[in-house]
């Protein structure tokens, strides 16, 4: 039986809980280490190591480096592991100073100045994106499922219909308005990013009447490019389908609830690191 382990760094455990819902691996794998559900306190040698959460403190750095040595294959799972995730909202200029001045208990692990993606420290073999990835995506990775089919973009997995003659002039925010159940959310004035977000999640959010916030990250065409290219493409979609002024779109894209996911891939860290390759994206 193949063995796998899950190391949880600073995150919300949502990725881990999603994995617990994906139980098809039970017959093929032995889960040898995952503190959320298994009482083993050290990582043995494993075939696959999943890493969830970002690197927020010195203990995360140690755990991460220690764990990858024992794994044949390393998968960075979820926005936090890929970009630092929601904890990086603390790295905005307005917040950074308050943050650094915040009281730190001196007997607990030391916080790093910001939250890092795991590939600032180790080289994952695969990135599984999503906040969190759905159980189906976890199973496709673990089972190396050849039959698994993901659409190129979320729009193709959402059944709403795009209309030519319904052009909103302003954005709605995510909380306002009565959502029509059949029509594309863009036609209804919502800043939905499904048109360029990688598919595979089956579009649960737009199906439920909520815009896609792009938690899966950009589709393959944009993976190796920097985020401006992705932004440009989102803006072109809105220009062709709506009459919303482009500065309104720009502000919406850069606001926290979207920035959190829109910067997750290409140029997150701002260092000279090469772009993550599209072959490594699941």
């Amino acid at each position: 039986m193949k063995r796998f382990a899950v190391v949880q760094l600073s995150g919300c455990a949502g990725c881990d809980v999603s994995l617990v819902n994906a139980d098809a691996w039970v017959d093929e794998y032995k889960l040898v280490y995952m503190p959320l559900v298994v009482s083993t306190h050290d990582i043995p040698e494993v075939d696959i190591l999943l890493i969830t959460g970002g690197v927020r403190n010195d203990e995360d750095v140690y755990k991460l480096r220690h764990a990858v040595k024992r794994a044949q294959m390393v998968v960075a799972v979820g926005t936090c592991a890929i970009s630092g995730g929601v904890a990086n909202l603390g790295d905005r200029d307005e917040v950074r100073e308050v943050f650094l001045a915040h009281h730190q208990p001196h007997l607990a692990p030391r916080l790093l100045p910001k939250c890092h993606p795991v590939d600032n420290y180790v080289s994952p073999d695969l990135y599984l994106s999503g906040c969190p990835p759905t159980p189906e995506l976890f199973m496709a990775v673990l089972m190396e499922d050849q039959d698994f089919q993901a659409s190129r973009i979320v729009c193709q997995e959402c059944e709403r219909s795009k209309l030519r003659d319904m052009r909103p002039t302003h954005l709605m925010g995510f909380q306002q308005g009565q959502v029509d159940s059949e029509i594309c959310l863009i036609n209804q004035g919502y800043l939905c990013i499904g048109s360029s977000t990688r598919g595979g999640c089956r579009a649960p959010c737009p199906r439920a009447g909520h815009p896609c916030v792009a938690c899966r990250g950009p589709s393959d065409v944009f993976i190796e490019k920097d985020s401006e290219v992705w932004f440009g493409s989102i803006k072109r979609v809105f220009d062709s389908m709506t009459s919303v002024p482009s500065d309104e779109i720009e502000a919406g894209l850069r606001s926290p609830q979207l920035a959190l996911f829109l910067f997750q891939f290409s140029d997150y860290a701002g260092d000279d690191r090469a772009a993550r390759s599209r072959e490594k994206m699941f």
Partner: peptide, 8 residues
């Protein structure tokens, strides 16, 4: 662990 939601 700590991420700092009240601040971020």
């Amino acid at each position: 662990e700590y991420r700092g939601f009240e601040l971020l």
